[in-house]
Amino acid sequence: MVAETEARSASLPDRMPWRAWLLPGLASLVGLLFVISLGVGPVALPPGDVIAALAGRGEVAHRIIIWEIRLPRAILALAIGAVLAMGGAALQGLLRNPLAAPSLFGAPQSAALAAVATISLGINDTLGWGLPVAAILGAFASVFLLLAIAGRNAGLLLLILSGLAVSSLAGAGTVLAMNLAPNPFAALEIAFWLLGSLEDRSMRHVTLALPFIALAMMLLWLQRGGYRALALGEDAAASLGVPVERLRLTTILGVAMGVGAAVAVSGTIAFIGLIAPHLMRPFVRHDPARLLVPAALCGSALLLAADIAVRLIPATSDIKVGVLTSIIGVPFFLYLIVRERRSLSGGMA
């Protein structure tokens, strides 16, 4: 106890003590959105009924709606939002660049292609373990390829252009599979991977994705010290004892595992990995290590909110959540480009 007090007094002074409330605040927000997410739908349930149904009380119909239909969806939104955001934050830490994001590098698109390809070829069915594995391999291949093309100290422009090429290729492959689909239903099923949605998921989907997502987040979180040291550049980080090559590979693996598992059950959901870390960065004094957890919580909140929004937006047909995140994400991306214009044009020289 005494040692702990001493340690705290020796620490550098916290200049913004209110930041101690950041994680509890974000966690409460995620909790609130989670409960709202369980209540929203064709049968609107007030929070009281939701909690009763979760506890196994209340009407049977409500319990079925909550446990069978809405809970898997909410859990997936929570987990996928978290892993996409943490993956983005980790990639940004690795590349020391706020514009790095798995979706800009073609990772989800490649994961989707791998998933679609194995389904079309009859290797996988949509509920087998082979599917997340294929998607993870697809995502890994794309990020690995991208960093191999762009090189170690690649500028922003090179990374984004290479990412564009990779995601276009993956997109073309997916559309080709649609093109060659034997019947309209098969084509429709493939289209699902391009849209990204959390509708009609079961607990089977949750068990399929969650282990990989948890492992990915653990893997990335353990690298946090390395991301902070990388702020000084690769040489300085290496001289501080950071295994830079291993950090790079572990990060790619973690991001691929998270993105692949997410895509395997939800299709491509873009831009969470770009927006969430950006929103949280000022709250952690731009520390790429302390960014990871708040970014993950923010990602959960964003995807839960987006998934609630698609159920509330009046439309003749369902709007898919992946479409919504893109519609919000692209203008945000443009805003970031404008902000980073200087470093972008610097990368061209």
Binding site: L12, R96, N97, A229, L230, A231, L232, H286, D287
Partner: peptide, 18 residues
């Protein structure tokens, strides 16, 4: 070079990373 706008003291603290 510093890639993120980290506070100066956090940069100095990186010296204790090893």
């Amino acid at each position: 070079q510093v890639h993120w706008p980290l506070p100066a003291e956090d940069i100095v603290a990186l010296g204790r990373f090893p």
